[in-house]
């Protein structure tokens, strides 16, 4: 009897949690398989589910979708570039600070941490001005570099935590074996922190793919912008095709969700451990 009561209580918590979590996502999905009329009717399931919206999006058959594929490619390219550059920058810095004990490393790490803790929207303002000064505004490099700036502090920190756990004797053994600093980095260090590299690379990639604010500030040309900015443009019209907006949104949301679940093992261990060290 007491057991039954406990189960009932758990279910009473579980159901609202499920509804709360899924409702906006289900709503998006619902729109993507509905015609405009049915989407606006407020039903919980369309009378005539259809994949037409996806066809429209893929064939770029709407004013708002004129450059869908181009923008999808932009998002992809920028995300991959940010992931790769962040990995290079962060792995080098973490190795230098943690394993080579480079003088000033502590200071650099603190600078990185400080950057990590500047609220993103606050850094956006001076970053925008600086990109203007550098003549990078409205180029994709501006967004790539901005996202690398934002992703690398945390990446460095996570990698440094992981590096600090490697035994010193490995470096010494490699030195005696005749390894140069670069060989130590390539042949011993990188393979040993590979799991953290996966976590950090995925983190940077998703951060860039998902970013709205910086993309919307730094890019403006329709052919340069990324998908989230294009989604934002839908709002500029009074009678936007919401069913197409939701369809595009769903297509845009799927890859990061898939990547997240594929790398969940690395992400959760690496990122939760890193985010809050109590």
């Amino acid at each position: 009897m007491k057991r039954l009561l406990t189960e009932a209580k758990l279910v009473l918590i579980g159901i609202p949690v499920a509804i709360w979590t899924l409702l906006p996502i289900y709503h998006m999905f619902l729109f993507s398989i509905s015609t405009k009329e049915e989407a606006f009717s407020g039903e919980l399931w369309p009378a005539h589910p259809t994949l037409r919206n996806f066809g429209v999006v893929f064939r770029e058959q709407n004013y708002f979708l004129n450059h869908f594929w181009r923008q999808f490619a932009n998002s992809l390219l920028i995300a991959v570039a940010v992931g790769a550059i962040t990995l290079v920058v962060a792995a080098g810095a973490a190795f230098s600070i943690s394993r080579l004990r480079t003088r000033g490393g502590r200071l650099v790490l603190n600078c990185a941490l400080f950057t990590y803790f500047i609220p993103a929207a606050f850094l956006a303002v001076p970053m925008y001005k600086a990109m203007g000064t550098y003549g990078l505004l409205n180029t994709q490099w501006a967004l790539i570099l901005a996202m690398v700036t934002i992703a690398s502090p945390y990446a460095i920190w996570v990698l440094k935590q992981a590096s600090d756990k490697l035994p010193w004797e490995l470096d010494e053994a490699a030195r005696i074996d005749g390894a140069s600093p670069l060989q130590l980095f390539r042949l011993v260090y990188l393979p040993l922190i590979a799991p953290s590299l996966v976590a950090v690379g995925t983190y940077a990639l998703l951060l860039a793919w998902n970013e709205y604010l910086y993309a919307f500030l730094l890019l403006s040309n329709d052919k340069d912008i990324t998908l989230p900015v294009a989604l934002g443009h839908f709002l500029s019209a009074d009678d936007s095709p919401w069913e197409l907006l939701m369809t595009t949104g769903l297509i845009y949301a799927l890859p990061p969700a898939a990547i997240y679940y594929a790398f969940k093992r690395y992400m959760v261990a690496g990122l939760t451990a890193g985010a809050v060290k109590s």
Binding site: P167, E169, E172, A173, R175, D177, G178, L192
Partner: peptide, 20 residues
């Protein structure tokens, strides 16, 4: 002289084998 040019080899207490 750098370690690698001293022509020595060392065995550590923890063995320090490369795990990968």
């Amino acid at each position: 002289v750098d370690s690698k040019d001293r022509d020595i080899a060392m065995v550590f207490q923890s063995y320090a084998l490369y795990p990968h």
